[in-house]
């Protein structure tokens, strides 16, 4: 469905992504693992249109996303949950959701269905987003992205800095979304999360896709983890 084809991305004159290629199937959860600075966030920014590849192409079915102006990309049905959440902190919870609704393709009661997934938010609609707890902020960032009824959800380290119970909750929602047919690219530092929910895992190393594999393969050969992420598997 989504094809990332040999993209090369630069910050100024510094090349950050080199010939990055992968694809994403409908309803699939693809996890990007890699060390700090490997280029995971840059991959997501390229998909959402914030970064334009110098060469290469990103396409969604037959739409060439790289040719669209950045603000048209989310309208193709791509929801983005940025690293560090990037909520509109001065705006209310409701207004953050409204921003998500802006780019949706169809009308209907999306907002109500999203709030059913995150009942806590319903009690806080008037509250300033910046005053929510870390876990609630992550839920709001996810809810905001879901408001545009994405076919593809980009999640950048959604469990960063959360308590275990919140991590479980977020991962559970990722699973629920898969059942609803939403494909997800999940950037994770926590290997356990990746093993738990991913259909496929892509290791990112120095701006390249080093290897793509299934979680089972990784469980069988934990040395790979040490090689790409520099950690061992716990549990």
């Amino acid at each position: 469905m989504l094809k990332v084809d040999a993209i090369n991305v630069f910050y100024g004159s510094v090349q950050v992504l080199r010939d990055v290629t992968f694809d994403l199937n409908p309803g699939e959860i693809l996890c990007l693992l890699g060390r700090n600075g490997a280029g995971k966030t840059t991959i997501l920014k390229s998909v959402i249109g914030q970064m334009k590849p110098r060469t290469g192409r990103i396409s969604l079915e037959d739409i060439d996303l790289t040719a669209l102006p950045p603000h048209e990309v989310p309208k193709q049905g791509i929801g983005y949950v940025p690293q560090g959440r990037r909520l509109f902190a001065e705006l209310s919870v409701e207004e953050n959701l409204q921003m998500g609704l802006l780019a949706r393709r169809r009308g209907g009661d999306v907002r109500a269905r999203v709030l059913d997934l995150f009942p806590v938010l319903r009690e806080r609609l008037g509250q300033r987003a910046g005053t929510l707890s870390g876990g609630e902020q992550q839920m709001l960032a996810t809810a905001r992205a879901l408001c545009l009824e994405p076919r593809i959800l980009l999640l950048d380290e959604p469990t960063e800095g959360l308590m275990p119970i919140m991590i479980a909750k977020i991962l559970e929602i990722v699973g629920t979304l898969r059942e609803m047919g939403v494909a997800t690219i999940l950037v994770e530092q926590r290997v356990e999360s990746a093993l738990h929910v991913a259909d496929r895992i892509a290791f990112i190393e120095n701006g390249r896709v080093a290897e793509v594999m299934t979680p089972d393969r990784l469980r069988d050969d934990p040395r790979l983890l040490h090689q790409y992420v520099g950690v061992g598997v716990k549990g």
């Binding site: 249109g49 950045p70 983005y80 940025p82 990037r86 509109f88």
Partner: peptide, 11 residues
């Protein structure tokens, strides 16, 4: 508040 993120939501 955040022009990049606004753009990522279709602004």
């Amino acid at each position: 508040f955040d022009r990049e993120t606004a753009q990522a939501f279709g602004v």
